[in-house]
């Protein structure tokens, strides 16, 4: 019996993939052995990231790791992928939202409609600004060309931010060549891992979301061809990668804020930042008005955040 081989492409470049996906795939390959091997490809390696969804749907690529937004997924839930402004505060919020508040079923159903298997959702880092010039007030955001997620960009443009989308691997260079003034794409761990800390000088501690939501997907046909035990093994390895990222980011964020020497920290006062949080409430309404599915998801985010606020410390401190 010949080895099943899959091609998987991640949204992440090689340096980041070393943490967010490679350990899980290496582990899978080691256990599955001759039965199945997954070849991992990095950002834009086989197809550009904006074509990832399409390539997976057509079977050019068998599996994908990405958020909904970056891979331009044609589903109703795309807008929540990556960073949904103020949708979550901590990285543990994501698995709870998916496993206890029903997002998982919604995602699986939405992707099934477009011929793609949603395997599982994972939690990444919070969303902060890393910029060449310091940001001390909302006025400093005005006119900044910033690489960010489409949805976050749409939200931030009301504060004068000019969102720019470029291939992920080109960001570091684009900051150096002046195409970008900064990045609102990750927490400080990625800024250091990817090399963005070398080209920016300041890190804004206020965040617009507590955790990025990323997913593993597969071409539906290829997924269904797999024997049950390999499906289970693949799921387990991906779940394990979620766990790895939980501590890698959580610990990394704190450690680099305290010990990192490449970026200076700045903060916008809470009272002023409240304007951004208030804008998010309006933004949620706008999104909810777009469709039934979106309204359902927004309602879940609302319910969840209300529950957490009621639960009090340590879930929420204000």
């Amino acid at each position: 019996q010949s080895t099943i081989t899959w091609r998987m492409q991640t949204y992440a470049g090689a340096a980041l993939a070393e943490h967010v996906v490679k350990p899980a795939i290496d582990m899978f390959n080691k256990i599955a052995g001759d039965r199945m091997q997954i070849e991992l490809f990095y950002a834009d390696q086989l197809v550009p990231t904006s074509e990832l969804f399409r390539a997976m749907q057509r079977g050019t690529i068998d599996a994908v790791q990405s958020d909904d937004d970056s891979m331009a997924s044609p589903t109703e839930v795309t807008v929540f992928g990556g960073y949904f402004p103020f949708g979550s505060r901590y990285s543990l919020d994501v698995p709870v939202l998916f496993n206890q508040y029903g997002l998982d079923e919604i995602w699986k159903a939405e992707y099934e409609k477009v011929g793609v298997k949603h395997i599982s959702a994972g939690s990444w880092d919070p969303c902060h600004f890393a910029t060449k010039d310091p940001i001390n007030s909302l006025a400093d955001l005005e006119g900044k060309r910033v690489f960010t997620f489409p949805t976050a960009g749409r939200f931030l443009s009301q504060f004068g931010v000019v969102p720019v989308t470029l291939p992920w691997e080109d960001i570091e260079v684009a900051v150096q060549t002046g195409e970008l003034d900064g990045i609102a794409w990750s927490g400080i761990t990625e800024d250091y891992t990817v090399g963005w800390a070398d080209v920016t000088n300041y890190f804004l501690t206020n965040n617009i979301s507590g955790a990025w939501i990323g997913h593993f997907f597969a071409n539906m046909g290829r997924w269904e061809e797999l024997p049950e035990d390999l499906k289970a093994l693949l799921t387990v390895c991906m779940e394990q990668s979620h766990y790895y990222r939980q501590w890698w980011y959580w610990g990394g964020e704190a450690s680099l804020r305290v010990n990192g020497d490449k970026m200076k920290l700045t903060t916008i006062p809470d009272a002023e930042w409240q304007q951004v949080e208030d804008a998010a409430v309006k933004f949620w309404d706008e999104i909810a008005a777009e469709s039934e599915t979106k309204a359902k998801v927004v309602e879940i985010f609302r319910q969840y955040n209300a529950d957490m606020a009621k639960a009090g410390r340590p879930y929420r401190y204000s």
């Binding site: 937004d69 891979m71 331009a72 489409p150 960009g153 749409r154 443009s157």
Partner: peptide, 11 residues
């Protein structure tokens, strides 16, 4: 059906 847009802010 769903009209594809570029995943940028300009869309």
């Amino acid at each position: 059906g769903f009209l594809e847009r570029s995943p940028t802010a300009w869309r």
